[in-house]
Write a protein that binds this DNA or RNA. Sequence first.
DNA 1: ACGGTTGGTTCGATGAACGAACTCTTCTGT
DNA 2: ACAGAAGAGTTCGTTCATCGAACCAACCGT
Lengths: 172, 172
Amino acid sequence: MALPREYTNQACSMVRALEIVGERWTLLIVRDAVFGVRRFSDFVEHLGIPRAVLTERLEFLIGEGVLARVPGPGKRSEYELTAKGRGLWPVVRVLSAWGDEHYAPGGRRRVFVHAGCEGEVAQSGTCLRCGDEVPLAETVMTPGPGLTSPNPAEGQVSAILARPRRLLQPVH
Amino acid sequence: MALPREYTNQACSMVRALEIVGERWTLLIVRDAVFGVRRFSDFVEHLGIPRAVLTERLEFLIGEGVLARVPGPGKRSEYELTAKGRGLWPVVRVLSAWGDEHYAPGGRRRVFVHAGCEGEVAQSGTCLRCGDEVPLAETVMTPGPGLTSPNPAEGQVSAILARPRRLLQPVH
DNA sequence: ACGGTTGGTTCGATGAACGAACTCTTCTGT
DNA sequence: ACAGAAGAGTTCGTTCATCGAACCAACCGT
């Protein structure tokens, strides 16, 4: 069968990018990985994604070199962003910014801060205080005024992610 | 029916953004609109999208205020980005950059240039020569070394878009 | 008046997503 | 050592979206 994710072989790089991360759930998995989610069950809990779909997406992202499967405690496997996957951080940042701008009546839900410098990370990825481009690992995610505090029913992961924390730092 | 595009009501703005532009084809429609495509038949020709799907997506994007239907020559309608829709330009730029970086063996397919200044527009949206943030309307899309020249079978629109042109400028 | 273009709609077939239940392995507490 | 729980998936029947080809109505140029 022709790959369902193929659009056409258009001469446009965005098409190629969307063939990798353009399917339902895929970018949310990448976002969660940026936020420090690493375990199968945590993705299921936090995203509400059907388990079969998660399995399929993780395999695919590993095959494309966006994620890597690494051994965790015990024999559980965990999923970790590769350098290529970390390259998707601007996509996550820019999409979040657009959503915050147009669909956050109570104000922005997340604010990203340059660790140490304390300056805010602009949509462009640079620090508003020092002007440098802020690497992913030096970015701290903090709740913005529009973030509603998660009710306990949303689970452990949501609660953890509602507190300030450094990106890529594992939630467990 | 519950909206099929709803993920959950997660407290994350990226989810909201993906509920608008996260479905198959939608971002490609926005990209084409940025490139100056405005007519139903041109979207069909350039994207190869099923007509019924295009109809549904255009209606949805109009309802969300991303596109506006404007009268064209004759009584044909055309589709034009609103300010909110033009706010998606960074998403298109950043996704294209990621695709160019990882899936363009022959080099980048598109290079964006600051009109007048002639400096290249970086992934962050700033001009590498003058350092200013380059507005969408002052951006010129030029073919990069990795762009394969479209064969005539790909149609008129592909041919037009393979030549340097200012973004948002209608193709017709 | 008429043939072509534009901008859709309709419809049957196919494929993907959903979600609940099930399996198998590995921890954990006693 | 053993029972139970939790982790990491797999299986499967149902539902929903997408595909693509055909159809249709309005308009346009001649």
